[in-house]
Computed example of a mutant assay.
Amino acid sequence: MLFPTHLLAAALLGRVSRLSPLWLVVGTAFPDVVDRPLASVGVTALYHSIGHSALLVVVALPLALSGRTGLSAAAGWALHLLLDTVHVVLNGRPGDAVFLLWPVLTPTDPLALPPGSFFVYYLWSPSFFLEVALWLTTAGLLARHATREGRAGSRDRVD
């Protein structure tokens, strides 16, 4: 999934849960903020490595148990991993979901494209349409909310 969609999903989860939207966004940004620079400079060969490894649960679990902030950050991180897993499976590459077990396992033929090339590859894939639907649904909900707020505001005015 594209980075902005991860942030959107975290913000939406923050709206419908008691979790902190800010820390959900921080947690969901974490995997890409860690892994993209490492892969870009050649420290790791994959864009899904350290931050995307479910083996980090040894760090995430104590964080989640530390309170609402930690739980929100850990939930954001888990949401990111879930969305990326859905992405690779939906796009016909279920074997690539082994990124969750990095460094123990790595995809046999990883899609190691830099961000710009990945975006071009990603256009018109099944996961791309899922993201478009998520963004359009969010836009529709925001428009509906703004319309309701506008109507409520006009009823409150005294002429």
Rank of each mutant, 00 (worst) to 15 (best):
P4F: 02
A11E: 06
A11T: 05
L13K: 02
V16P: 00
L19G: 05
L22S: 07
L22I: 15
L22C: 00
L24Y: 03
L24S: 06
A29H: 13
F30C: 10
P31M: 14
V34G: 03
V34N: 08
L38V: 12
A39P: 08
A39M: 08
A39T: 11
S40W: 10
V41Y: 12
L46S: 14
H48Y: 08
H48K: 12
S49Q: 07
S49H: 05
I50L: 15
I50M: 10
G51K: 09
G51I: 10
S53M: 04
L55N: 12
V58Q: 01
V59P: 00
V59D: 00
L63I: 06
L65E: 08
G67Y: 02
G67R: 03
R68G: 03
R68T: 14
T69V: 15
G70W: 02
L71K: 06
A78W: 09
L79M: 10
L79Y: 01
L81E: 08
L81M: 07
D84F: 02
H87S: 14
V88A: 06
V89K: 04
R93K: 09
D96C: 00
L101F: 14
V104D: 02
P107W: 03
T108A: 15
D109M: 01
D109S: 14
P110I: 07
A112R: 15
A112Y: 00
P114S: 11
P114E: 14
P115A: 13
V120K: 11
Y121P: 00
L123N: 06
S125R: 14
P126Y: 01
F128N: 12
F128A: 12
F129M: 08
F129Q: 07
V132D: 04
W135P: 03
L142W: 14
L142Y: 08
L142T: 11
H145V: 00
H145N: 09
G153S: 15
S154H: 11
R157N: 03
